[in-house]
């Protein structure tokens, strides 16, 4: 069993590299494999290279592919953490109010200036998360049931205001709709860099709590008897995952489903233990989003919001896994 799990994990890494290379080679503008290789070759050795291909590969495709990997893994990991902390299979990274907060910020951004969309989305996502937490903190402890309820209440409140603004005030309806469904069209190296730094800081902290996450799954009483301070661990883990999710969402809009489905796919393959899940859920999320985004941006009719594609690919995958498990 252990060897098999290791083998599948290893092939997941190989798959990711493979997907990465494929995605760089695919796009709305056809660039042959030969030209791609020669662009790299000419660039490295300082020959004259085709400016068009160079810009498309280095400034459009690569940043976007890397953003897809980063955001996908962030959503996968945050989804896993939400499902564990809430002990609820429907948990997703947006439960603490991230998405509706970001939507409100973005709506205000669309009203004022396109360039305020990202900063406002991030600020309002953090505001929503902050309100959710301050409501659910009782006696210095965060209770999962209260957190989920306050998250939902805050979400509805923020969505109501966002819907009001979008419906009545925002002129560019298609732009807002596109943002709400998510898309990685704005990718650039700068965004990649900062998101990577954030992931570099936050991921290891989350991975550090692997054992505690396993124990939390057993329930609060069991966890206490095993000497784990669930309140503290839950707070740290959820706050950090909400923070990095807010960052991802403010850059790419609300990409649904990845956070919900990646941990489940991981669980069906590797079982409940977080020892593997903490690495595989983000990897599965990264692959799902990368494949979806490559399809979204390569459509000949112009770009499709990636959220539509993620559901289209993710659902059948999960349904298949559920079905297979039932048969066994």
């Amino acid at each position: 069993m252990k060897g098999k799990t290791f083998f599948i994990s290893f092939s997941l890494v190989i798959l990711t590299i493979f997907d990465f290379l494929i995605s760089v080679a695919i796009g709305p503008v056809h660039i042959s494999l030969n030209s791609i290789i020669s662009v790299f070759y000419d660039k490295i050795f300082g020959f004259n290279y085709s400016w068009t291909y160079y810009v498309i590969i280095f400034y459009i495709r690569m940043p976007r592919v890397i953003l897809a990997l980063l955001v996908g893994s962030i959503l996968g990991l945050s989804g896993l953490i939400a499902q564990t902390i809430f002990r609820n299979p429907l948990g997703d990274p947006y439960l603490t109010g991230v998405s509706s907060g970001a939507a409100l910020g973005a709506a205000i951004g669309f009203l004022i200036s396109p360039f305020l969309v990202t900063p406002l989305a991030f600020s309002f996502a953090m505001l929503a998360v902050g309100i959710t937490f301050s409501i659910s903190r009782t006696d210095g402890e965060v209770k999962a049931e209260i957190l989920i309820l306050s998250g939902i209440s805050v979400s509805f409140l923020f969505s109501a205001v966002a819907s009001y603004l979008i419906y009545l005030k925002v002129y560019n309806l298609r732009g807002v709709l596109f943002w709400l469904l998510g898309g990685l069209y704005g990718a650039n190296w700068n965004e990649d860099f900062w998101l990577f730094i954030a992931a570099l800081i936050i991921f290891p902290i989350l991975i550090y709590f692997t054992r505690e996450l396993d124990i939390i799954l057993l329930g609060d009483e069991e966890a206490k008897s095993l000497g784990v301070n669930t309140g503290r661990v839950k707070s740290i883990v959820i706050i950090l995952s909400s923070l990095i999710t807010s960052l991802a969402v403010s850059l790419t809009g609300i990409i649904g489903f990845i956070g919900l489905v990646s941990p489940h796919i991981g669980r069906k393959i590797f079982g409940e233990s977080h020892r593997y899940l903490i690495f595989t859920a983000p990897l599965i999320g990264a692959n799902l989003l990368l494949i979806s985004d490559t399809i979204a941006r390569s459509s000949p009719q112009g770009e499709i919001p990636v959220g539509i594609i993620t559901s289209f690919i993710g659902s059948p995958l999960l349904i298949y896994l559920l079905y297979r498990r039932r048969k066994i």
């Binding site: 503008v29 068009t52 498309i56 495709r61 596109f178 009719q301």
Partner: peptide, 18 residues
């Protein structure tokens, strides 16, 4: 040559159409 009246045009297409 895109297919809808108000399409999204990808960065790649703009760069290659120049």
């Amino acid at each position: 040559n895109l297919s809808s009246p108000y399409p999204i045009i990808g960065n790649e297409t703009i760069v290659s159409d120049n």
